[in-house]
Write a protein that binds this DNA or RNA. Sequence first.
DNA 1: ACTTTGACTTCGG
DNA 2: TCCGAAGCCAAAG
Length: 112
Amino acid sequence: MRESILAAIGKIPRGMVSTYGAIARAAGYPGNARRVAWLLHRSVGLPWQRVLGSGGAIKLRGDSAIEQRLRLEAEGVAFRGRRADMKRHEFKFPQKRDSSRQPAGRAKRRRR
DNA sequence: ACTTTGACTTCGG
DNA sequence: TCCGAAGCCAAAG
């Protein structure tokens, strides 16, 4: 849990970013975005700068937010306004799904 | 053992 | 775009 979340964060490659919610899901704990944030805050040795809020928004305050942005830009992540360009830099965690994936776009969102 | 606390997210107005 | 409310739940104190 702690480990799976931390491991997921560690898989984000340089130049890519992910979000709290996506990491929680990838770690097997959907809906636990806050835990991801909590762990990030008190753990060390993680690529913390690569974790953003939904939509690519930086959720830190003050100086930390500036530092995060600088670090990401240094890795090649582009920003559009206050958000990272997720279309180009969002890291997709590998999922195990069988080959019966819909070939055409149209991603569907479950929920309620 | 109980309460507070988050670097959150989504929805509605 | 911004604001508030509700859902979420392990870890800290």
